[in-house]
Amino acid sequence: MPNYPILAEAGGMAHFAGRFFRDGFRPRYEVSEWLYQCYVIGYQSLPLVGVTGFIMGIVLTLQSRPTMAQFGAESWIPAMVGLTIIREMGPIITALIFAGKIGSSIGAELGSMRVTEQIDAMEVSGTNPFKYLVVTRVLATTLMLPVLTLLADAIALYASYIGLNMRGVTTLALFVNNVLSRLAFGDVLPAFIKTFFFGFAVGLIGCYKGFYADKGTEGVGQAANSAVVVSSLVIFILDLVAVQLTGLLGLN
């Protein structure tokens, strides 16, 4: 049988995901480790994600202003920027930043644990390392990325409001009304739901790459690197799928 590394990789990941669903929902639950991972993965990523979101909001506003002013549509900037951020930019930028920060750290952490036999040590000391290391992290990324995205959206919209006020005066109430006037559930909910999948992908791929890292310190670096690369790619693919799905469901 010819050797297709990509197929083998995909199969391995699918098997890994299957194991996550098989093991993850069986007791016993590593609640304390999960909460700690949520804290590390979610709360400690907030400054980075927040700064990114702030800059994204302000830049989008300032960049779109000249074009919109040409069309005399400056009053549409809040609606346009709001839609852009909530539908696409917020989820995708946050997920990419998240993949860069969390995917690599999970890949490196688990990779080095694998290389220094810490994962074996857990196995030997009667702790299921898959549950203790993988399930907690994947669950944490799956649940924390949506929260991070929501906060990044909020920060980006506030930054957009600030950006508008740098060249004119808009009240917050008018801004909020402008944004909401063009917004529907079909804009918010699919964008929110897809972030769960982004988070799941980042966590799962980071864990997979780390968990099966080759021996040696080079393997750790490779695990961290390929975790980021693959999860970024998968995020874009998932985004495409999400767009198609929401289109099929008539939510676009």
């Binding site: 080095s112 644990m113 220094t116 036999e117 810490q118 074996d120 040590a121 030997v124 000391s125 009667g126």
Partner: peptide, 17 residues
Amino acid sequence: ELRARVGFLFQSNALYD
């Protein structure tokens, strides 16, 4: 349960960093 009665000292110690 069996492993609880068997200790294992890894060559690399495998202490949790």
